[in-house]
Structures are given as C-alpha cells and as structure tokens.
C-alpha cells in the first residue's frame, strides 16, 4: 500500500552539523502517529522540512506519490499538508473568526478578491463559524485572540489547521504550555479530529502521546532510532535508555 506521506533518505546539515540523517518515514491516510525524541533530536527540523520552511540537503518528500520536495510552503498547504505551531503564532489582534476565516478563504481561492467586502462572503464565514462551534469556541468568535485564555488559543491553532482541509496534519506540541486543567480540552479535540486525516503529533507529554498515537517514531540525533506501536516503544530497551530513561528511570 502506498503511503500518503513518505520521506526518502531526508538529510539536512548546517555546515558540518548534521541535524537530520537519512530519515525515511511513512504516514498512511487516517494515521495517528507520534514523533518523539529528546530535545535537539531534530523533530522540529523534520517538521520544517515537511512543510517547506527548510529545504532538505538531500532526499525526497512525497505526498500522495507526488514529489513536493521543491515546493514552497503555500503550495504544499494547497496540496494538503500543513501544520500547527509549538508557540502560539496566531493573529493576536484579530478576532478568532478572522483567524480561521483567513485560511478558509485562502483554501476556497477567495482570499485575493478585492471587489466585495469580506463580510459578504457568507460561506467563508459560515464554514469558519461551524469549525469554531465543533471546537466549542462559537461564543468566542468575536473576541480578539489575545483576550482568550491560553488553552483556548491552542484550540484556535487547531481550528485554523482544520479550516485548511488538510490531508496530512502536523501538530507541533499542541498541548505545550497549557495548564493541566485545560489540557483535557485539547485531548478531547484531538480525539475528535476527522478520521481520514493523517495526523503526525510531536509532543513531549508522554501521557498525550500514549493516549493519542497508534504508532510512534523515535528520533535521536537526527536519525530514526525505531518505530512501532506504543507498547513496543514503551518496551524497547534502547528507547528507555536514550529517552524514556531520563523521564521514568
């Protein structure tokens, strides 16, 4: 079976520093996959290469069999691969609705229209509102993002990504910095993500990883150490040594 997202021997080096080495990776449609590894393992580099922020030094990235290695970020999003951010990078002074609507309009090819007022694009607004409703943010749609509690800002982050109707969604630490009380809200939302989307989650919180992921890939020093189901990974001696060891050992 051909994978939805595939990387072949992806490498990245900055001068003599090799931050990613021969990463070959598959993601099937509907997958719930986690990428873990100690700090500096190259997780963010890997995601940045997938989304087009960093050009790989060598290797290929295929989305649905199509080579997207040389495409710009925006072109990749149009083909269905996108991300959320680790630290909030929302449009802080805009309303929650606009945060989501900007992406929806872009996806529908309406974001460059100049003639009619934005508020006349009812279907864009309805779709954005609908999304906010499913995430329990309907009441906040008129508020500015800065005025929301942090946990809800993380949800807006996910709402924006959902508005893009992606095939592959990369979640960069969706629960980072969220107080324990609010993290349950995020997990619920993650559980309800549309089934057909392939999700790759990068997360430090092992509770989130083991609750959410069906498969886990462990990245250490820029290379794939191993891949398997959560019980396999939890039982793997090498993983315990390099990673889990420092947490549970």
């Amino acid at each position: 079976m051909s994978a939805l997202l595939e990387t072949r021997d992806l490498c990245k080096s900055f001068g003599a520093l090799r931050v990613a080495e021969n990463i070959s990776f598959h993601l099937e449609a509907g997958a719930r996959h986690a990428l873990i590894g100690p700090n500096g393992a190259g997780k963010t580099t890997f995601v940045n290469m997938l989304t087009g922020l960093l050009p790989p030094s060598s290797g290929l990235i295929l989305l649905g069999g199509e080579d997207i290695t040389g495409l710009a970020q925006a072109a990749r999003v149009k083909r269905g691969i996108g991300r959320t951010f680790q630290i909030n990078t929302l449009f802080r002074d805009m309303s929650v609705l606009d945060n989501v609507a900007l992406g929806v309009a872009e996806r529908r090819g309406m974001a460059a229209r100049v003639w009619h007022p934005a508020s006349r694009y009812h279907d864009v607004r309805e779709e954005a509102l609908g999304l906010l409703e499913t995430l329990g943010l309907a009441e906040d749609s008129g508020k500015r993002v800065v005025d929301l509690p942090y946990g809800k800002q993380r949800l807006v982050e996910i709402a924006i990504a959902l508005g893009l109707k992606l095939r592959v969604l990369l979640l960069d630490e969706p629960a980072a910095g969220v107080p324990a009380l609010e993290s349950g809200m995020i997990l619920q939302v993650l559980d309800r993500l549309p089934g057909e989307i392939a999700v790759l989650i990068i997360e430090h919180d092992m509770d989130v990883v083991f609750r959410f992921a069906q498969r886990i890939t462990v990245l250490v020093e820029g290379t794939v150490l191993c891949e398997g189901t959560p019980p396999e990974i939890a039982g793997d001696a090498r993983v315990q040594r390099v990673y889990l060891g420092e947490r549970y050992g």
Binding site: T51, L53, A72, Q73, A74, V77, K78, G82, R83, F85, T89, L90, F91, R92, D93, M94, D98, A101, L102, G103, A105, E106, R107, A111, A112, A118, I160, G163, L164
Partner: peptide, 17 residues
C-alpha cells in the same frame, strides 16, 4: 484582510497556504 494577516504574522500566513 489577507494583507492585515501578513502584517500581523507573515509566518502564519505562509503556513495557511
């Protein structure tokens, strides 16, 4: 609205396509 988005956060604008 797109222009304002770019002013507020161009990184994010790239990421939404």
């Amino acid at each position: 609205a797109t222009l304002c988005g770019i002013r507020e956060n161009s990184v994010r604008m790239h990421a939404i396509g």
